[in-house]
Design a protein around this nucleic acid. Structure first.
Ligand SMILES: [Mg+2]
Length: 360
DNA sequence: CTTTGTTTACTGTGTC
DNA sequence: GACACAGTAAACAAAG
């Protein structure tokens, strides 16, 4: 086992990340899986620091569970009802910590996609997480083993919470290190993972701990459109690409596309804030004078930002102010590919100025 | 209602 | 500065 934390930790903040703390909790459990509340409990039990501000860190921790591929949600068994799922470690993430030290994590773990054969004998790429979640359900025994053609990275693996579904009532919960399945069918978790999780000292020469090579990524829709300048004309529909347009799947660390309105005379800038996620914003929340309305037609790929002046502004437009300059920032991927944390390139911020005159 | 889960946005930090 | 990782807040949905 990676060394667990000291059983008593002072009030100081432990040097472990949420990923580490959560991994500790899960690994410490008999079944290698825990419901959320038990993860909380584990952490609070041995780290007094986390007995305070529970809202805060628990929110962060949940974020980590969802966000990180190394944590898998395993559905509850019907005979063990309750709220929420169980959380396990992705078997292929055993390599995550350098020689098992919770203090040093390697590269962020990405659940690799794996080639399988579907019912029609078609080769399909699916997230390996799926396989393990399914497998946990099925347990050791029978069943149409999803044949694995090629599991991308050969690597050190760890146990899946097998006993969970299989040791319903009778079998004693197997101590993790001794779950040795002797006879088995063509494919189980145990088949594709190595027999034991050996952290610090021992290294299996047979299975060198290859760091997870980045796996093939799903194809991406790269947004091609660029906002075009429309100087000198009233633009009813400004083609604006939102930052989230650039994202493929989950996004994180993505910059925002904001829209600014700048008064040509006073040069005061009004920040209209990021574009709304799903719907059009209510125009009342916008600044009084340069109130505008932004409508993003859809939450996905591309949206059109429609800029109007609010009635109040409209009245002064062309008298008080000859024009309005809209400064619109948007982002483009620096190269192509994906966004930020997901292996791709960062985004560049571009700025466009749109001078808008009243349409006569 | 609360808890659990997903996601976006933003921030800070260390490294190269 | 680019980039990867980490922590936090918060919106929001779904399920208990
Ligand atoms: Mg996850």
């Amino acid at each position: 086992m990676p060394r667990p934390a000291r059983s008593t930790y002072s009030d100081a903040k432990p040097p472990y990340s949420y990923i580490s703390l959560t991994a500790m909790a899960i690994q410490s459990s008999q079944e290698k899986m825990l419901p959320l509340s038990d993860i909380y409990k584990f952490i609070m039990d041995r780290f007094p620091y986390y007995r305070k501000n529970t809202q805060r860190w628990q929110n962060s921790l949940r974020h980590n569970l969802s966000f990180n591929d190394c944590f898998l949600k395993i559905p509850r068994r019907p005979d063990r009802p309750g709220k929420g799922s169980y959380w396990a470690l992705h078997p292929l993430s055993a390599d995550m910590f350098e020689n098992g030290s919770f203090l040093r994590r390697r590269k962020r773990f990405k659940s690799p996609r794996i080639a399988t054969i579907d019912h029609n004998m078609q080769i399909k790429q699916i997230d390996s997480a799926k396989i393990f979640q399914e497998q946990a359900k099925v347990g050791l025994p029978p069943y149409p083993p999803p044949p694995i053609i090629q599991a991308s990275p050969p690597m050190m693996m760890q146990k899946m919470p097998l006993s969970y579904y299989t040791s319903m009532s009778n079998s004693p919960i197997t101590p993790t290190s001794t779950v040795t399945n002797s006879s088995k069918q063509s494919f189980t978790i145990e088949n594709i993972i190595s027999p034991d999780f050996k952290p610090s000292t021992t290294k299996s020469p047979a299975t060198p701990p290859t760091p997870p090579r980045s796996s093939p990524v799903a194809s991406i829709d790269v947004v091609k459109s660029r906002p075009s300048l429309c100087n000198g004309a009233w633009c009813d529909d400004l083609p604006v690409t939102r930052s989230t347009d650039m994202c493929c799947g989950k996004s994180r660390d993505s910059p925002v596309c904001r829209m600014y309105s700048q008064d040509a005379n006073s040069s005061t800038e009004t920040d209209f804030g990021p574009f709304p996620r799903h719907a059009s914003p209510d125009s009342t929340s916008f600044p009084r004078f340069w109130a505008a309305e932004s409508v993003c037609s859809s939450p996905i790929p591309r949206g059109t930002c429609r800029v109007h002046l609010a009635p109040h502004s409209e009245k002064h437009f062309g008298t008080h102010h000859k024009s309005v300059t809209l400064i619109i920032n948007w982002t483009v991927p620096k190269k192509t590919n994906r966004n930020t944390d997901y292996g791709g390139k960062r985004l560049l911020t571009r700025t466009g100025k749109f001078k808008v005159f009243k349409n006569v």
